[in-house]
């Protein structure tokens, strides 16, 4: 039985979770603000169309392969998220925190979030979203004196760079499918998905424009683009506000982990209802361990995206026949 959370709350919790990878970027974007805005504008309708089968496939009577691929994607995503958050934290602070200890500290909070259920996670997301909004206002105020419209890079032929930037924007993440899975009906799921995609695109474009207006052409080459902008700002006597921003962003990363883990365990409960079937987790866990040991974080993101694409393709398979 699906949890009784309103559609608006479902959309907000997924949108809040999607903010984490946007803010905790650990790789250069490689694309300027103009191309990013165009890529986001092109990606939203394309993604919405790609995600259309999700509501059908992730329904309780949908193809098992679809939910299985989605669960596998969530498992890979949780591993990616742990790695990304730990790496971001280690890079931006002077703490040499290993992935093992970071996971050990975070798992306790993650499991409590899973125990609290989607209702608890949603209520927490509201608080984190307000904190993030306050942080965004603070960020804007702190760098407004360094904003220059003339720093924005004007590209003569954005089409070429657009084709290079678009694949990165079309990379599927599990949060894109969550609204369809959580919504009571596929139609409602499509509406929430559209709202989440629009919000995600607006934030992505806004961050790119803000970053380039401050840093100029160098923004696209920054390893931690948003964090670099956060380091620049100061308000009154407070000259270093990046610790405030990092704290809020790490909370968003924790929320995303909670939501992904909760969704993964829920899916597994439905896919592997018996104790005997849960032995399938052993080869699954082994495959995940091999993946973690052999692939980079960026490769794992592509594996996750591939699994989600497989889930969407499997959603087109015939539904399971109900046993009379």
């Amino acid at each position: 039985m699906k949890p009784k959370i309103s559609l608006r709350q479902q959309g907000l919790v997924v949108f809040t979770a999607l903010l984490a990878p946007l803010l905790l970027q650990t790789r250069p974007t490689g694309a300027g603000a103009q191309v990013t805005v165009l890529a986001c504008a092109a990606a939203v309708p394309l993604l919405w169309v790609l995600l259309l089968p999700a509501g059908r496939g992730l329904a309780p009577d949908g193809p098992v392969l679809c939910r299985g691929a989605f669960a596998a994607a969530l498992a890979v995503s949780v591993a990616c998220q742990l790695y990304q958050a730990q790496r971001f934290y280690s890079d931006t602070t002077e703490t040499d925190l290993s992935l093992f200890w970071y996971t050990a500290v975070v798992v306790a909070a993650m499991l409590y979030g899973v125990h609290a259920g989607l209702g608890g996670i949603t209520r927490t997301a509201n608080v984190f979203l307000w904190a993030c909004g306050g942080g965004a206002v603070l960020l804007l105020l702190s760098v407004v004196g360094q904003l220059r419209v003339s720093s924005l890079q004007v590209v003569a032929s954005p089409q070429t760079q657009l084709w290079q930037a678009l694949p990165a924007r079309l990379l599927l993440v599990p949060e894109f499918l969550l609204p369809a899975w959580l919504a009571p009906t596929p139609r409602q799921g499509r509406k929430v998905t559209a709202a989440v995609l629009a919000g995600w695109a607006v934030v992505t474009a806004a961050l790119a424009v803000l970053g380039e207006a401050v840093l100029g052409a160098g923004y696209a080459d920054q390893s931690h683009p948003v964090y670099t902008v956060a380091r620049l700002g100061g308000v009154s006597v407070f000259r270093r506000l990046d610790a405030v921003h990092v704290s809020i962003w790490m909370l968003l990363a924790l929320l995303r982990l909670m939501l992904s883990t909760w969704a993964l365990l829920r899916l597994l409960q439905g896919l592997l209802p018996t104790a005997r079937s849960r032995w399938l987790l052993v080869p699954g866990g082994a495959a995940l361990a091999v993946l973690l040991g052999t692939c980079t974080a960026q490769q794992m993101e592509w594996v996750c995206g591939g699994l989600l694409a497989a889930a969407l393709a499997a959603a087109l398979l015939p539904k399971r026949r109900k046993t009379p």
Partner: peptide
């Protein structure tokens, strides 16, 4: 001094 921006933004091509 990024003066060229004001012309590029009008006709980049």
């Amino acid at each position: 001094l990024r003066m060229g921006f004001w012309l590029r933004s009008r006709d980049a091509a």
